[in-house]
């Protein structure tokens, strides 16, 4: 039960990262290698504004969301748009960007682990053995709120439909009057902002350092490959489901085993069904 709660917590922020990654990949066809660094940036927004400047935590999380979202738009303008006909080029550029962010953060904050003081020490005692720190509950709730909001956006709003349509058939979407550029910018903002929120809300619970992006990105990659890229909503569901399974294995058995299981699943999926376990359709 306690481990289940821990798994839920880890799945919460991992799925935020993975869903953002999958959204960007689905709409723009580029793999954003710097996505883990967007998570890291979100955490450093907390270090800078909450730890150092002592601004209210919730406000800082909101700033983390918007700031990292804007970094996403910056990436679209400087890399993914100029390289739009060259997905491999976009990937390589994002690796360069990853290094730039890491270096800048290292220069600004040093390589030391930053300890972010917890916002609250409160613990909800569910039973004698099961305790849920409020700080972790906050991560779970944030993920729930963000993912629900994303779901409603994709299902109920005009621009959500535009994103889904573009992910399924960019050219057919253009023929409906949808601007692929606008859609790309929206996808980059949302995708990056989700990673930023994840980094911000988890910062007080983890040790923040310039390299924390790596640990989440590997899991996130497994999540999206296994989850597949059929439809955006399918990918969102798959990411959340798999993130949960992955963290359950990690917490109940072992992280290495979870990665092995994930990678084997990934291989299996790539061999049997290259569009992903839940994927339904080949990209045109």
């Amino acid at each position: 039960m306690q481990t289940g709660l821990n798994a839920l917590f880890a799945a919460a922020y991992l799925s935020l990262v993975a869903v953002g990654l999958v959204l960007i990949f689905g709409v723009m066809g580029v793999i954003n290698f710097a996505h883990g660094e967007l998570f890291m940036l979100g955490a450093y927004v907390v270090v800078a504004l909450y730890t150092n400047l002592q601004m209210p935590f919730v406000l800082v999380v909101a700033i983390g969301l918007i700031f990292v979202g804007l970094v996403g738009i910056l990436m679209e303008f400087t890399m993914f748009h100029p390289l739009r006909d060259n997905p491999l080029g976009g990937l390589v550029a994002s690796i360069g960007f990853l290094m730039v962010i890491q270096a800048s953060i290292t220069i600004g904050f040093g390589v030391r682990m930053e300890h972010v003081p917890p916002v609250t020490q409160d613990v909800i005692i569910l039973s004698e053995k099961v305790r849920l720190p409020v700080q972790r509950l906050f991560v779970i709730l944030s993920a729930f709120v963000c993912l629900t909001a994303l779901w409603l956006f994709l299902k109920k709003t005009k621009f959500g439909w535009a994103l889904r349509a573009s992910a399924q058939d960019p050219e057919a979407a253009m023929l409906q009057g949808i601007s692929t550029r606008t859609v790309s910018i929206i996808a980059m903002f949302i995708g990056a902002a989700l990673a930023g929120v994840a980094g911000s809300v988890t910062a007080p619970v983890i040790s923040v350092s310039p390299v924390i992006g790596h640990s989440v990105i590997v899991s996130a990659f497994i999540v999206i490959i296994v989850g597949g890229i059929g439809s955006l909503e399918g990918a969102v569901l798959a990411s959340v489901t798999y993130a949960f399974i992955h963290t359950v294995i990690t917490t109940f058995i072992d992280g290495v085993i979870a990665d092995i299981v994930g990678l084997s699943l990934m291989l299996l999926v790539l061999i049997i069904k290259p569009t992903g376990m839940f994927g339904t359709q080949d990209r045109v």
């Binding site: 439909w161 349509a165 399924q168 057919a172 409906q176 359709q281």
Partner: peptide, 17 residues
């Protein structure tokens, strides 16, 4: 070139984007 994973109605409404 319909949008395969959108419903019929969503496809139609997308035409009115």
């Amino acid at each position: 070139r319909i949008f395969p994973d959108m419903t019929v109605e969503e496809n139609l409404r997308t035409g009115a984007f």
